[in-house]
Amino acid sequence: MAAEGKAIDALGQFELSTVLGPIGAAVGFTQSNLFMVIAGGLIVALMVYGMRPAAMVPGRLQSLAEAAYGFIDDMVVAQVGEEGRRFFPFVFTLFMFILFGNMLGLFPYAFTYTSHISLTFTLALMVFVLITAVSIALHGKKFLGYFFPEGAPIWLAPIIIPVEIVSYLSRPISLSIRLFANMVAGHVMLKVFATFVVMLAGLGAIGPFVSVMPLAINVALVGFEVLVAFLQAYVFAILTCIYLHDAVHLH
């Protein structure tokens, strides 16, 4: 789009390409999928290898695995209630998948799969299908009452019902765009400032001194991006929990 100047190529990092040679090309296995596999492998390694000692007093890795488990478990129970326990594996998988995707994306040469709207929208769509299915399965026809709260004056129906439907349908959109936009913005900024470092460094004698400034900004940005990476995974998970609460309890 706009930033595609001669020297600054901030969006090339989001280009899809196949990996694993001809086999990957044949099945359309992209580097995005490769990082998904890496993230999944790391998650499974953390949860299985980390929990291997199964010690009463956990070591470092086991503490991390237990902290992740407890974090999402508390979130699900606090937001959805005790009956939300059966959604725990889904929310956990979602949270860890997004968190590891965001974090892996911060490594040099890594591909940030959460920076693709098609991916975040697919995840959000899974959540949307899940909450709709859950509320229809639990409440049947009463699910339609979701769009018109009990006790509201009937003449408000022409206003309330479309508003409720639009807000319900916009959930996956807001969910996916929030994550996608945050990741893209962060990575574009990182790339732009990193390019500045290189460009300024080439400015003769004073170059190395001037280029320290964008470098310092990038250092700060990386710290900020770590925060965003965690925060966006958290937001995605907690919004999923809130939607699940609505699906289970209908408002």
Binding site: L16, S17, V27, G28, T30, N33, H116, L119
Partner: peptide, 12 residues
């Protein structure tokens, strides 16, 4: 690749 990526996403 956009579509194949999503298929792989669902599988993974």
């Amino acid at each position: 690749l956009m579509t194949s990526k999503l298929v792989w996403l669902v599988i993974i």
